[in-house]
Each structure stands twice: as C-alpha cells, then as structure tokens.
C-alpha cells in the first residue's frame, strides 16, 4: 500500500482548496449583506459548516500525506466514533455489555488490520459472516432473552454501517489496477469529493430551489429539486474528473451517478434511524454538521459500491 503524489493529485487538491476559498469568501460576503433573521441564521450555519470543511479537509489531506497507514487509521477512527454515536443512542441491555466490547475492541480493529494487510478474501466476509454469527452467540451466553432478535440486529447493523461499509473507502488503496500502480489515493479522493460534493450541492440547491419534499416523514430537508440538482451536479463534476481515475469520461459519469444515488439512499436510511431514535443529529463533534455519522451517512452506502465496481471492472 504505497501512495505517491503526482501532479494530478495536486490538481485535485488545488481544486478543493479553490472551492473552500470561494465558499469562505461567499459566506463572509453574505454575512455582511443579509439583514433578515432567518437569512442570518442560514448563513451562520453555512459558515460554521465551511469552517468545519476546512478542518475536515486538512485532517483528510494530512492522513493521505502519510501514505496508506494514515488513511487507514483515519477511517478506523471515524468508524470508532460513528459506532460510538450509533450505539450510544441505541438502547442496549446490560447483557450486551461484553458483546459490545467485542464490537469496539476486536471486530473494528481487525477489520482495519485486514484493510491494511490487503487481505481481500477475509476483509469482504469478516463482519457479515464471523462477527454476525459471533454477536448473537455471545449475547445468548449472557442469558438475557428479552428483545433478543432486536438487540442482536442493532449491534450487527451498527457494525455494518459504521465499520464494514466505511472500511471500503480506505480499502480502495489495496486494489491493484493495471497501469495505475501507487495512484490509488486519487480513487479515494474521487469517492470522497464526489459524495461530499453531492451532499453540499443537495444542501445548496435544497436551500435555494427546494419546494417539494420527497419523504417528509423521514427527512424534512430532502427535496426533489435539491436532490436532483445535487446529484446531477456532483455526477457531472465526477465525470469531469475522469482524468484522475482509471475510468473513461462516460464510465466516470455512470460511476459518479451510481455512488451519488447510493449516497442518497444512505442519507435517507440514516435519517430514518435518527427519526426512529427521536434525535436530530447523531452527535455534536463537527460544528454545523452534527456528529461524524451525520457527515459520512452517504459515504457509508457509496463506498462499498464504488469499491466493488472498481474492483470488478478495473482490476
């Protein structure tokens, strides 16, 4: 797992930097101009989000700069925080204590060791097979049968979303793509940029043009206008970044569209979980965004698809 910096990756990073500068300047300018109470609140949130984006970008780039190990560690940490946010909000029983210990301190680290090691065969089945069978067995040993199926499912689902799905992002670094050796960092960057840009554009289009809500009972902020605008915009940007990937222009467009649709599904499912648990956000770690899981909800669903499409067609 070796990552090199070529002019393409510098170009990508330059693009992100330009985008952040534009967002900061626009936010600053709007904050000077807007007078209405609601307008100012929206801009204050926008500026808090932009500020957090600067920090998130800096952390992500610093992790990438250390090569494979930094990215694997960063995503392992994100998984840890996301799993913690999810399980904290999900009611579990006293009898689940040791099962949860296994989830946090055995399954999570092992999954990321498998990513670092590049052991695809076990990486792909470790959680869905071994962890999934171990969890109910360990809880059954604790002797509490009340809500057994629901309790088991909550822990399994938590591991699935927060650990298994997320681990597919740094797993991109282990793919061996002919003619693309040591360039995989750009794939990870492509995934994160396209998916997060889709979120940002859905937010921007939603705030400006959003009228008709898609599923108001699940997510009051998701509108047809915002979603279509955001997904179309981010997919187009993904296509225009084809030169940094092993994909051609049209393939890049199709792949970007696919991961954006998956990302939309991820956002929707995690919103449904939040409504079910009766909370607005999963946490408070990232100012303006909520918790880590609120920020990576789309990535959770997009990463496995992106990984497998790339692996199937390009390795």
């Amino acid at each position: 797992m070796n990552v090199t910096w070529d002019h393409e990756i510098l170009l990508l990073l330059g693009g992100i930097l330009a985008l952040l500068v534009v967002a900061s300047v626009t936010g600053w300018w709007l904050a000077q101009r807007l007078r209405s109470e609601t307008g100012r609140a929206v801009i204050a949130n926008f500026n808090a989000r932009t500020k957090s984006w600067w920090i998130m970008t800096a952390v992500f780039v610093a992790a990438m700069a250390t090569g494979g190990i930094g990215s694997v560690l960063l995503f392992a940490l994100l998984s840890f925080v996301a799993l913690r946010e999810l399980i904290t909000l999900t009611p579990t029983h006293r009898a689940d204590h040791r099962t949860l210990f296994w989830a946090f301190f055995v399954f999570l680290p092992v999954q990321y060791l498998l990513v670092y090691d590049g052991w695809y065969g076990l990486f792909a089945i470790f959680i869905p097979v071994y962890a999934f069978l171990f969890i109910p067995a360990r809880s059954a040993l604790a002797g509490d049968t009340q809500d057994f199926l629901a309790r088991t499912a909550k822990i399994q689902w938590g591991l699935m979303i927060a650990v298994y799905c997320v681990s597919h992002a740094p797993a991109l670094l282990m793919l061996e793509i002919p003619g693309y050796a040591h360039e995989n960092a750009k794939l990870l960057l492509f995934l994160v940029v396209v998916v997060q840009l889709s979120d940002v554009l859905q937010y921007v289009f939603g705030k400006t043009l959003g009228r008709r809500r898609i599923v108001p009972s699940v997510s009051p902020n998701k509108t047809w206008e915002g979603t279509i605008g955001g997904i179309a915009g981010a997919s187009l940007v993904g296509a225009l970044l084809w030169w940094s990937t092993p994909f051609g222009f049209w393939a890049a467009l199709a792949i970007a569209l696919t991961i954006n649709l998956a990302g939309f599904a991820g956002g929707l499912c995690l919103s449904a979980i939040k409504r079910d648990l009766g909370v607005k956000d999963f946490g408070t770690l990232i100012e303006g965004h909520g918790g880590v899981l609120d920020r990576i909800d789309s990535l959770c669903f997009a990463a496995p698809l992106f990984f497998h499409i790339t692996r199937y067609f390009y390795t």
Binding site: E85, R98, F101
Partner: peptide, 9 residues
C-alpha cells in the same frame, strides 16, 4: 460487576 469499559458517550 464489569471490569472492561465499552466506549459509549
């Protein structure tokens, strides 16, 4: 009765 912590918030 437990000696290992689970890192919830």
């Amino acid at each position: 009765g437990e000696y290992l912590p689970v890192p919830l918030i």
